[in-house]
Design a protein around this nucleic acid. Structure first.
Lengths: 187, 187
DNA sequence: TTCGAACGATTTGATGTCATACTTTCGGGT
DNA sequence: ACCCGAAAGTATGACATCAAATCGTTCGAA
């Protein structure tokens, strides 16, 4: 009974878990283990920060894996889904690539790459900027809007509505993360 | 006055910020913006989850960028640094690749890749398993221990000790993330 | 008016992650 | 004793990200 998939010849993922882990659970918390090592080495004052960074990384890995799995049938990745949603929320359904990069906080080359793929899929098309010839616009197409909506339904259903946290926990988390982002200059 | 670097021809990063952002700050919080859109579209019950996932992703991006920047002079990435630390904490300074993958929660192919590079750098060497000929061990070398320690000093100094959160916030964050990880089957 | 600096986008190359397939080895059940 | 399924590691290919270099365009200052 594979229960939950382990890496190396991972049996097909088990549906049903709120957020399924693609790997075999460890018999202990690796973050706590690392924190203990940090303290043993005399780095107490950095241990909590290290644990925080490690925790964030793990949770992000978990969520990313879950999201990519849900979007895979649509031939979308989270990066491309985010780009489509950004366009669909925009006033005219199109934005300069530079604006996309600023909003999604990713490298210009990543935007070019994502738009290339979305364009090949027919979900987006490049247009000329009316006044600035340096600038190119990415415009969402009807199929693009359709698939973005489909992806949103699936993500809402299978991920966003199933975060295993209470409202208070979500709010507390949100406040703290907001602090970090603001302090880092995100907005 | 570049103040803070923007993408596209980013001037050299400004030292001094606790955690420097590599991009120009936005005039608003993109996560709040997205939440508003979610609510406007009638997805209230998924809005908080969506905001949580987006926040986590952003914070992880920020931390990852900061960490990679600190480790770059050592020709290390966070992934390879984590692998070295795992080995340095292990009893004999060596572990089977499969154990490494389980502990770091990454794909076997990623472990092979990282060990390949670390071996090329002389920070790790592959050894045969004493009894199981399928298994290979990754063993940390003296230069490997040295560079891992150096990286730890830098990360403690420039990242882990500078998380812009109070002890209470760190603990609250830790508790909540622990819940998510545990629920997802991380341990 | 012109010229150089800055900007927008793309290309190229390095790195990392995952999925899939394959090889070798191990080990349990008959 | 043998066999077949599972495990460990690797190769390959797809995708994403960033850095650095490049090309065309824009704009402001001399």
């Amino acid at each position: 009974m594979p229960g939950r998939a382990a890496y190396a010849h991972r049996p097909p993922n088990v549906r049903g878990a709120i957020i399924a882990a693609p790997r075999e659970p460890l018999p202990f918390d690796p973050v706590e283990e690392a924190r203990r090592h940090w303290i043993d080495h005399g780095w107490q004052d950095a241990a909590d920060g290290m644990a925080m960074v490690t925790s964030i990384t793990r949770v992000q890995q978990i969520l990313q894996a879950r999201i990519d799995e849900v979007l895979r049938p649509l031939e979308l990745t989270f990066a491309r889904y985010e780009l489509l949603m950004l366009l669909s929320f925009s006033r005219e359904g199109r934005l300069p690539l530079s604006v996309i990069g600023a909003r999604l906080q990713v490298h210009p080359a990543s935007v070019t790459n994502a738009v290339d793929r979305l364009e090949a899929q027919g979900f987006v098309e490049r247009q000329a900027h009316p006044t600035d010839r340096r600038t190119r616009l990415a415009a969402i197409t009807d199929p693009g809007r359709k698939v973005a909506l489909d992806g949103t339904d699936r993500l809402n259903e299978q991920v966003f509505r199933r975060i295993p946290l209470s409202d208070e926990q979500l709010q507390s988390l949100h406040r703290v993360l907001c602090t970090v982002r603001h302090d880092a200059g995100d907005f």
